[in-house]
């Protein structure tokens, strides 16, 4: 089993890119399942179903989506093994720019689009900077020069990764991504594996349901702004 974690800002083209790559992988006779992690709602399961792709949705609701991810992903892997998939792909929106669901030893993909502005590579944290593969989408609608500028910014933010242009609409480039996915490392279990970066620390009274504002309600892990 190979586990591929795909992350990226909302609407960057994750689902489109995954669907196009799976099209290529199916041509190569591989069985693939998809997981979609989101907060409240998602339509992506319908998009996957429309392409005859098996998927499961995990909604974190009031929980931190990243904590939700990490406490479910090993069960998901076992489910995928039970389904005898060759490849399990997890899609999750980058819900804050710091977090990344990427796991050491599993291929990590970050999807980012050309429309996001040149300061985006700076603002997106480990999700981009620690990915093995950065997929850039929507190159069809911006100028060549802006594409080049954006690609260099990404290169500077992630000097070691593979950068790949994929068109989420036509699938151009998805064949190459599929080849990279196909050659990803096999894993048997996630137990004992480590996240590439620690989860955001959050254990304060508000995590536990507190809603009232005020110093005497702030308990646990609290960090204060410097205002002067």
């Amino acid at each position: 089993m190979k586990l591929i974690t795909v992350s990226g800002p909302p609407s960057s083209g994750k689902t489109s890119v995954i669907i196009k790559s799976i099209g290529e992988l199916k041509d190569r006779h591989l069985k693939i399942g998809v997981l979609k992690f989101d907060c409240l709602v998602t339509d992506d399961d319908n998009l996957y179903a429309a392409q005859n792709i098996d998927s499961r949705v995990g909604l974190s609701g009031s929980m931190c989506p990243d904590h939700f991810f990490v406490s479910n992903i090993d069960d998901c892997l076992n489910w995928a093994i039970g389904q005898s998939y060759d490849i399990l792909i997890s899609e999750s929106a980058g819900l804050c720019n710091r977090c990344s669901p990427h796991i050491k030893g599993c291929t990590a993909v970050c999807v980012i689009d050309n429309l996001m502005g040149i300061n985006t590579p700076k603002k997106i944290g480990p999700m981009l900077k620690m990915a093995d593969i950065v997929v850039i989408t929507k190159g069809d609608i911006v100028s060549q020069a802006e594409r080049e500028i954006f690609a260099l910014k990404i290169r500077q933010a992630n000097p070691d990764g593979i950068i790949l242009h994929v068109n989420g609409l036509t699938g151009q480039g998805a064949g190459e991504l599929a080849t990279l996915i196909e050659t990803a490392t096999e894993i048997e279990t996630l137990v004992g594996k480590e996240l590439r970066i620690s989860m955001p620390s959050a254990l304060c009274s508000y995590c536990l349901g507190e809603t009232v504002i005020g110093l005497n309600k702030q308990m646990g892990n609290v960090r204060k702004m410097k205002l002067d």
Binding site: V142, S143, Q144, E148, I149, H165
Partner: peptide, 27 residues
């Protein structure tokens, strides 16, 4: 194919627009 810094091919198409929020000179 993967060389993002040195592309063999530059493209110009009718669908392409400038999206960056800068002046011509800065661009």
């Amino acid at each position: 194919r993967f060389s993002v810094e040195h592309k063999l091919v530059a493209q110009l198409s009718q669908n392409m627009n400038f999206v960056m929020d800068v002046s011509v000179g800065e661009f």
